[in-house]
Nucleic acid binder design. Structure first.
Lengths: 341, 341
DNA sequence: CAGGATTATCGAAGCGCTTCGACGATCCCC
DNA sequence: GGGGATCGTCGAAGCGCTTCGATAATCCTG
């Protein structure tokens, strides 16, 4: 193992000088810097992470707590994790992977051991029990998701209320009058993360404003569950021509079922999905969708974390505005009996 | 921050005693142990990770290098990563997440900085450039995947040759005589990971042994590509009744296309998939498949890594035998003109 | 060109832990 | 009951780094 002392000897300077070359915390003459850098290069020196963490009280590690199993779509979790890791490297940080099932004990362990400089938490529940621990231990942290009480915390999330509203708007613009939101499973609304509820709120409010008649059904995403829900919706209000789907797994069944029931998409029925672009593009027809900006969330989370480490302790609710991309699953309602606004 | 010294003071013993209580490297009287544990508990002490790493030359961290984008199916990568993380915690280790795009520089950085005790690498290419670096830096490492030259390395992988053979066997047992393997994209066979080639080898060899006529086509997994390949196969050998698929994304198109062409699955045509159980169960009909044992691979990788840290430097090629689960997409060929062996 | 400010470097202390050697106390066996 | 093991504890050194003065050399400025 090559140490800083060896580099110093090789370069003919003192160890502290080498340290300052590395940290740029004091000015160093060009001449000395060159000698030191040459020595580092020729010896293949890498600072010992533990020693550095001990002396500087900074580990250069960000802890990322991901759900083992959750309501989130796995590729989205993965994309966020990768974005966090990639962005972290831009700041010279590494990423430690923790699972949510370590819960508050995990948070305590990391906060107490100085293993990480900050934490990034995913799959935030409305009343997440990790949050009080974060506050109590005063750990720099960023939440990906929005809890019920975000006071004093940094959060990043898609603006799901605006997302719901954007979907309603798009359908209204196309002349649809009767619309339905096929959402996440029951459980998601009750126990969990709030994003489903926020989408619904935004959707319903905007639908009302635009004079749409809106329905909503929770959906587990299986073929059977989707079939049952669709049947109920069409029975209750056969004039329904606009659908919003917020459950990736309900998308393929929904499209099959609409086809089966003879409702052509997009000619007679429009479908807007809230899903990653990849899913929207893979479907046939390609779906008009609001994408889940996974990469952007990961990147912002890291930036917020780094800002906190620089001293910006200010709370910040960082809601990413939705982007609705029109593709081939929505179209103006030709046969409507009146013109839309 | 609570230090070991504070714990020692509170417990009325020396710091070294506290250390020995924690590490169990020397015997401690029950009495003393209790006092120390009480102090640890009441102060909420957690050892400082950096200090520990510096003094003991062990970071208690495993580095896991995952592909950013690869031929692997994302949920499988995720499942492996989660299994690694969970299993690592059983050994008191944490997991550092690296991306494959850091390449050899990443390996050098980790090896040089003592940030991790061992590395676990995913998405191993046949001639992976990280391997020489691993050898040169003498870093404890486990590969998930099999390179061309695994000499001296610990590897974990599904036994893809046996997998191909098992698929051929199953179809032969059911009386199919003309079979086809719809594999990964061209690129996967040429540049990459070898698992596709190994499957093919096993499939072809066993097919020959069993007197089957076997075809093979690379498939990019899009609807168009799958359609083209299926058409070519059926044109060239219309008597083909058994299919093996090794590309998750080709599964839905293949099933649709077979249905469209009026070939009932499983009555007239059998389909065996090589994919995660989840995918097999989601399809309709549920697919007979050889599952990708993601969890098992992750677990074994951690165990092999830990064994190396205990001193077991022996190379080991750890091939997991395939398990073929019969579901609803394969059936005996009723109308065959002769009995199968 | 004297004297204060600035620049470049060094030495030493210390971060919190592990571990080695030492040492008294206790044990057991003949 | 004397002497070698064993047990339980302590003190101190040291892991490789950062950082705080201190100091010498160089720079301005009037």
């Amino acid at each position: 193992m090559v140490t800083l002392a060896e580099v110093a000897r090789q370069a003919g300077v003192s160890p502290s000088t080498v340290s300052y070359v590395l940290s740029r915390k004091r000015s160093i003459s060009d001449d000395t810097r060159r000698k030191v850098e040459a020595a580092i290069e020729s010896l293949g020196y890498h600072p010992h992470a533990g020693a550095r963490a001990l002396a500087s009280n900074r580990s250069n590690i960000l802890a990322l707590m991901v759900p083992l199993r959750s309501d989130m779509y796995v590729p989205v979790i993965m994309e966020i994790a990768m974005a966090v890791t990639t962005e972290a490297r831009e700041y010279g940080q590494d990423v430690l992977l923790l699972t949510k099932d370590e819960g508050t004990r995990g948070v305590r362990r990391i906060a107490g051991s100085g293993l990480a400089d900050a934490m990034i938490l995913m799959d935030i529940e409305l009343d997440d029990d990790r949050i009080p621990v974060l506050r109590e231990t005063d750990t720099p942290a960023v939440l990906i998701g929005l809890p019920a009480d975000p006071a004093g915390l940094a959060c990043v999330d898609l603006d799901f209320e605006a997302t719901g509203a954007a979907c309603a708007d798009h359908l209204a613009d196309l002349g649809h009058r009767d619309v339905a939101l096929i959402g996440e499973g029951e459980g998601v609304y009750q126990r969990h993360t709030g994003f489903a509820a926020r989408t619904l709120t935004g959707f319903q409010r905007r639908a009302a404003e635009r004079g749409l008649r809106a329905m909503h059904r929770a959906c587990e995403g299986t073929y059977e569950s989707t079939a049952g829900i669709l049947a109920r919706i069409l029975e209750e209000r056969p004039s329904t021509t606009g659908f919003v789907v917020q459950n990736e797994s309900a998308i393929p069944p929904l499209l099959s079922l609409l086809r089966l029931s003879g409702r052509a998409v997009p000619e007679e029925t429009s479908v807007v999905a809230i899903c990653p672009d990849q899913v929207a593009l893979q479907s046939s027809p390609r779906l008009t969708s609001v994408s889940i900006p996974a990469q952007e969330m990961g990147r912002r989370a890291v930036r917020l974390a780094m800002a906190q480490l620089e001293g910006d302790r200010a709370e910040s609710i960082n809601l990413i505005p939705p982007t609705l991309t029109v593709r081939d699953s929505t179209a103006a309602l030709a046969a409507a009996g009146f013109a839309a606004s």
